[in-house]
Amino acid sequence: MPSEHGLLSQTFRIHQLQKLGVNLDKWDYVVALAGNPNTGKSTVFNSLTGLRQHTGNWPGKTVNRAEGAFSYKDNRYKIVDLPGTYSLLSTSEDEEIARNFILFGQPDVTLIVADATRLERNLNLTLQILEITPNAVLCLNLMDEAKRKGIKINEKALQQRLGIPVITTTARYGDGMEALLYAIEQVATDAWPTQQRFKITVPEKLEESIHALESDLKELYPDLPNTRWIALRLLEGDERVVDALKNDEFSGLMNSFQQPPLDLNAELDVLNTNEASS
């Protein structure tokens, strides 16, 4: 019997896709992989990169995120597997890692992997992500299970309502992965029409308060992305965001994701040199 890895590489071969594993020297676009727990995020990650989950360390925090790479057509992509969460607004550490990356890491595409058999539950996180960025793709995964349960999804209607590409997949068999890659490319290269993108409308009074706060934030941090989202959280009284503002954490967060990943080999060299000289 072939190993899981072997099976994946066999069943999942797409013209113009090159799985680059951990080859992260340079990339054209960054893709963040977000979604509820147990939706098959890592299966999507592994089948695009050819990896069996790789974890790496990043400066600033001692947390493990998985990172990999692939190339499709003319572009190279770095893909970051974020912790699975139900929300970006509660106060667990996992959720903060996911939300900080989407907010401050500013990925070119956020790929949301959803469980097609629990669509309603999964759309909560989807809407929270769309509140931060319209540069997203919704991957309705586990379609084989959905079909078995007799669930039918009108993905065209969903796509129209959300304003982002909606792709149905069964990642463990590689089904739908080519369409998914195409959608990622469309959003990354800005070929996806932006005028259709999702916008949450709020009452005018709230809108005024958001604007006032946004301009204050922009004065304090001219490069701060997603000021609207941060303003909304401040109005909501989100303690974590209020603290981040009080303790001036935003600059640090913005910088931490601009740096290239740690070169572990270089670190090792330094370590060896130090040991040899002592």
Binding site: L89, S90, N124, E239
Partner: peptide
């Protein structure tokens, strides 16, 4: 209220 309410809403 607050974070607790948010958490329940997020859980469905």
């Amino acid at each position: 209220s607050g974070a607790q309410r948010r958490r329940l809403l997020d859980l469905g």
